[in-house]
Amino acid sequence: MTYVVFGLFGILTLGGGILVVTSRNLVRAAASLVLSFFGIAGLYVLLEAGFMAAAQILIYIGAIAILIIFAVMLTQRVAAGNRVAMNSQWPWALLVSALTFALLVYIINIVWPLGIRAENVPVLAADPTRGLGMALVDWGQYVLPFEVASILLLGAMVGSIFIAREQHDD
């Protein structure tokens, strides 16, 4: 049963990903991106990381994907999306990506052999979301990165507003 669901979400994720990098129409690519994100959220649910799944949907689909679609529509004539999608060196890119993938599979196969079934998977802590929240504001753990992340977000926000603002003075 879980394998079926895993396969479903996996196909959603990877298929979405492939569509993202191949489709000529950028809005379609963005929609495929949403699909891929959704698949990953499903995988998170399978991994019993409910919080991450909800955050994935909220942030990636609700914010980032919409931002991207906006950007696509602002930088593109709406109907004219059918130009050449790839640059001249795409065979090289394909080769390098394939090489990297083979490398990764090779390494994964050494440490976690592919054929092995999952046995005695450790049990989850009582309330992982609460644990995550505690860890993020715990002095001994992640409070500093957490604060730095907030500053990063603020900086990104100010920076992007500044960059994207229309300059009227020239």
């Binding site: 050449v84 790839m86 795409w90 890119a93 394909l94 990506s97 990297t100």
Partner: peptide
Amino acid sequence: CIGLYGVFARR
């Protein structure tokens, strides 16, 4: 790797 390919090859 799909993402990687996209980064390398998309215009």
